[in-house]
Amino acid sequence: MQTVQPRSLPLRLPRVRPGGVLPILAILAVLLVLVGIRQPDFLAPQSLMSFLGRSAPIILLAAGQYFVIVSGEFDLSVGSLVTAQVVVAARLIDSDPARTWPVVLLLLAFGALVGLVNGLITTRLRVPSFITTLGMFLILVGAVYLWSDGAPKGGLSEEFRRFGRRAFEDVPVLGRVPYALLVLVVLAVAAVLLMRSDFGRTLVAVGDNPRTAELSGVRVWRTRTFAFILSGLAAAVAAILLGGYSGVSFQAGAGLEFGAITAVVLGGVALGGGRGAVVGAMLGALTLELLFALMNFYGVSGALRSTVQGGIILLAVAVSATRSSSR
């Protein structure tokens, strides 16, 4: 899927950020208006803050996925990685508050390690990332079930869970600001800064045309491996927030990889790499979450959610694809 394709003019290199954020902003605005009409309370600071807090994990996963996708690869392992992290955390913490911080550090290291392995197998052994991360998906799911004999054990400490469910109370104007939202804001700013740094430009160049990047002295394998590590780290943070918010289950991360990829694509990022902004990817995730909230408000049955989701994704991507090809 993403081999060396001599795509269009290589002279596109200097234009590293051809935006693409506007369409997703427009969709987001329309959804906000629709939500506002149906459920004006939703736009009150209080509920908006908690909505943003709830959406933090998927937004972070989308940012992580963005790094991998813009460099020309895929990461299908993040959903299973989130599940594995949550289950591992519960078992290791075993409801003992003293173990909270060591386990948090361990989870981050574990996420980075899985990303490193994904990256090295993809770049050094030349296995397509679709297959690498699919294999990793099977391995992680199998391993986590195996390790816990088929049912999650132990429990998360209250200390651990506060990241995902607590908030700063009585903040002026905003009311209640979830810790998760704070984590999200800090990491989102870091992601944007990272994309503006040399590394960010290199990452996009690698995705746009790996051959050219290689010839201009970039170590493509190193850059891509680093992107996978970032995705693994994002999954670790998402797991910490999700575990706190919704607790331990084998379903904790189910389907999140497709959710994240969808969000990234909705945000105007091209699969195959080289085009799109990290802000777009994060807005894509926010849009997707808002869409689900909207469907709730309009009483769409839970079962039909995926149909609406599928329809909107196809529509959005088809419209943007036909527009960009007619230019």
């Binding site: 839970g302 599928g310 329809g311 991507v317 694809a321």
Partner: peptide, 27 residues
């Protein structure tokens, strides 16, 4: 048709169609 006429990436196109069917089945 999604992949060719509408130029949707095959990964997204077939994932989206899969979601359409999933909703129908779940519902």
């Amino acid at each position: 048709l999604l992949v060719t006429r509408f130029r949707v990436n095959a990964f997204i196109a077939t994932l989206g169609v899969g979601l359409l069917l999933k909703g129908y089945l779940d519902n």
